[in-house]
Design a binder for these strands. Structure first.
Lengths: 229, 229
DNA sequence: CCAAAAGTGTTCACGGTACACCCATGC
DNA sequence: GCATGGGTGTACCGTGAACACTTTTGG
């Protein structure tokens, strides 16, 4: 079965920049390509958009198929359309970025990916296609957006300490934050629910755990509140 | 001549939200469709991406062909991929928004547009396809971006008064600004070149003219400066 | 008791905001 | 001379930034 058109058509793909966080680094999930072109090279997970699925659905499907990642925050980033970005033929790619709670996910390679692995965003291998450019754009977007939208919580476990929260911002923004000022500010926003629970298994005083309260946030937004780190 | 593929492919288009400004309103440039579907309806200028041109080139070409608009600030907005957004078949559209100096341009309808005209952004006709959604997104982007990037100058003539500049922000942001504070702030940024020239043909004291100094702006950015209204 | 991180307040400087009158010009 | 917008300064307040010590806990 084939499909015929009057004019030539570009192929359409999605690519996903998946961010995760551990104690030291912002991480990016890459797959090792099993097929040509660029077989053996690291690349962003992604693939062809089917003709009866939305772009976002395609991105979620590819993530699931290639890495096993499912519950994520997903946002469209930019569409890359350089004429020669794919050596085979004209391919336009709609890039997304995703934020995942790394602690929740064990990634698994699948289908057309030889393997999937996390890399520190500050120490990446060279990538197939124009994926380095896409990654740059995703990093810039994340850095820009994390300070005025409460998306950073998507990278943390549901229950977290204020130190973990501060560390997340320090890692993403690549600058130190003042502990007392940070706590004052974040608590003054009244977005966190203080839990009756503390860290476990630490070799020092255990820190209080908090949870981001989405409903509170939405109520404050309606009242004109603006999140700001 | 036809083109045949193994899997069905979505068609790829670009659509442009073109913003202009006059004394009272933010304007949007629309075309009246000459062809089905939605013949006779108002729509965003746009059309199919050719297989050997970039997305931005396609946007510029369609703008030129359909409206005669040429020198513009153009930025990619978002890619719209709902499965049924075009009644004919699957069409994915990469939306751009443009800022033009309305005083410089006389728009002209052309090719497959029956006519082209400016509409106040606050009083638009209903639009073909999902173009109302695209326009919403463009307005939101413009409002969000104009306060932290000096893109508003693209809507004004090269030489402008501080009152015109303030008015532009008031119109886009839909809120009044304090005259003295606005002037203090904008002049303190040291981005404007004060010209030895004043308004002409006004029935009152003529205002000083200024010009945005792009080179100064770039130098300040390198030194860590952040534009902010 | 020692190591490690949790937790907590105050002071100061700066920038944002509010606000009203005189001036220049064209008709 | 009058109508119209051009142009200017000051006082107050709130927010951001700098900064160090005590407490708790596990080993």
């Amino acid at each position: 079965m084939t499909y015929t058109y009057k004019y030539p058509r570009a192929a359409l793909t999605v690519d996903c920049v998946v961010f995760g966080l551990d104690d030291e680094d912002l991480k990016v999930l890459l797959i090792q390509r099993a097929l040509e072109p660029f077989a053996g090279m690291w690349a962003l997970p992604g693939g062809f958009v089917q003709v009866e699925e939305t772009l976002q659905d395609a991105a979620l499907r590819e993530l699931r198929e290639e890495t096993g990642v499912t519950r994520v925050y997903l946002e469209q980033l930019y569409t890359f359309g350089a004429v020669d970005r794919d050596p085979r033929e004209r391919v336009v790619s709609v890039a997304y970025y995703a934020l995942v709670k790394m602690s929740d996910h064990r990634v698994q390679a699948a289908t057309d990916a030889a393997s999937a692995a996390w890399f520190a965003a500050s120490d990446l291998p060279s990538l197939a296609f124009d994926h380095e450019e896409i990654l740059e754009a995703a990093l810039a977007r994340l850095k820009g957006k994390v300070v005025y939208q409460p998306i950073g919580f998507e990278l943390l476990p549901r229950k977290f300490t204020l130190t973990q929260l501060q560390r997340m911002y320090e890692i993403i923004l690549e600058r130190p934050l003042d502990k007392r000022n940070f706590r004052k500010k974040i608590l003054a926003m009244d977005l966190l629910e203080e839990l009756d629970e503390v860290e476990r298994d630490v070799a020092h005083r255990a820190a209080r755990l908090y949870r981001f309260d989405e409903r509170k946030y939405r109520r404050h937004v309606k009242a004109g509140f603006n999140f700001q780190i």
